[in-house]
Design a protein around this nucleic acid. Sequence first.
DNA 1: AGAGTTCTTTGACTAAAGTCAAAGGATGAG
DNA 2: CTCATCCTTTGACTTTAGTCAAAGAACTCT
Lengths: 306, 306
Amino acid sequence: MSADQVPSEQVPSEQVAALRRFNRYFTRRIGALDDHYLGQDRPLGEARLLFEIAGTPGGVSLRELRGRLGLDAGYLSRMTKALQTQGMVRISVDPQDNRLRTIEPTDAGRLEVTEQNRRADALAAGLLDTLTPVQRDRLVEAMATAQRLLRLAAITVDLVDGAAPDARACLDAYAADIDARFPEGFDPSDLVRPQEVSGTAGAFFVAYEEGRAVGCGALRTLEPGVGEIKHVWVHPRARRLGLARRILAALEDEAAARGHRVVRLDTHASLTEAQAMYRAAGYREIPAYVDHVYASHWFEKRLGPR
Amino acid sequence: MSADQVPSEQVPSEQVAALRRFNRYFTRRIGALDDHYLGQDRPLGEARLLFEIAGTPGGVSLRELRGRLGLDAGYLSRMTKALQTQGMVRISVDPQDNRLRTIEPTDAGRLEVTEQNRRADALAAGLLDTLTPVQRDRLVEAMATAQRLLRLAAITVDLVDGAAPDARACLDAYAADIDARFPEGFDPSDLVRPQEVSGTAGAFFVAYEEGRAVGCGALRTLEPGVGEIKHVWVHPRARRLGLARRILAALEDEAAARGHRVVRLDTHASLTEAQAMYRAAGYREIPAYVDHVYASHWFEKRLGPR
DNA sequence: AGAGTTCTTTGACTAAAGTCAAAGGATGAG
DNA sequence: CTCATCCTTTGACTTTAGTCAAAGAACTCT
């Protein structure tokens, strides 16, 4: 369950109907085309597997494929062997770990995938072909917008323990990210301690997209009634979706639920987009509430009753 | 093959890639949800069949279902019987044609479909739930735009014989349509004769969406070098897609290919949208070139070299 | 070094999806 | 009235997709 979902807020049934209408139309009419032509003389499962293998340069392990495609180990083993006997892939033992098998496409396998792609491209081009350039531009733009918003909708922002592996992984990525960004670098020892953002002391949120952690945000207590937001970060692949805003909202809701009246945060001079985002989210700049090497701007937001 | 496709006009590969990217994302992530939850304790094929049966008020024939779902006759027969023994559908002999079977949902069948719909709605609502109202509005708008353009792209405009059943069916629908629209009604004997719009005399185009005729347009020769466009019509379910414009373009291309230098047409005073469309398509109003009960405005377009 | 865990392979299944052809009743065109 | 055609049913398959459990090799932790 997502922590920032507010179930009281009703989704108009017209919007639900619109999504389902589009879903039906698209999966039945357009999406089906791709799959249907994908595996011409090959079972769909096998075609998908080959596609996945060829799409990963440098080879993939069976383990990785199993996770990505959600297949049974036995089933996958057999399909891979079938592809091998057909000369589509090469199976070798992983040099690091002799339990693992590394799968690579052969030239023949790569060729087949290229051919598949060519066919699918031709199909897509044939569809777009009847539209005028202006209509095509509009279609591409509409699809980009829809995809962006659907991705955002499919991301959940969950409350996790500050010591959880996902939380630490996000903080490590965050630290590496800003270390590269700040002229003076960043010292990871300045990250919040797990106990500061767990249990009654604070909170830690991780954003998940398809099971992968793609963002985080922390809340700790500065003084009674005052929360501090730290380490709001979004993975590069999930940027420009509006996710930081969602994480911020989850942190604010959590702060309000914990009885904080205001939340504060500081930010580095170089993070101008972040500052704009905070302003747009209702934060106003305040004098320094804490001295800090990396901070140059301080913000505060009064939490209204919700 | 569509008659109005101009293969010389290249579709940018970036647009092809965008469509395929969206396609992949949507079918794998969003579309899959629906199907997965559709048949909870029932094979997918059976669930889809029941859905299709319940979605057609007044019952469907097996024949119709076979065509719509593209199923093997034997396979369909067995599945229908399975649904019958489960009490989901009622099978009866068609009163018109004793070879046909008419399938109707029972109350239990209808209930199950309603329940399925409820679940799918809840799923869709759950997805939209995390978005703000503004984001939801934008998503719905983007999906509507994409669907509109994809539908238009999937429609082909084909040259057919003026006497073909589809051509006649379109003209009948056209006649009924304007008969209801014109204050003075419309006399079907004023429709073009098949031989006027076939072979060397003229041309007839029918627009097809998923195999169904959803629009038409005729071209006949007025005098050497001058073509006349008649009966441009779009089925109510395919309006507001920009299809009339496509049909018009196909007619103009055909006229140019036949060596006409200009095309003319007349239109009724009450069809103001049509008049706006003609103007936007480069037609200019001219004096009456022929006297006609239903005509109040006359247009002409000079065909450039293409 | 031993115990527990991880990863792959193999055998033994099952259910779903779909194909093909024969057969029989019903219809329609001539 | 007859013959070709249409629609459905039935029998007899095949392929695809997927599951479960046992077993063995390799790794990790202590």
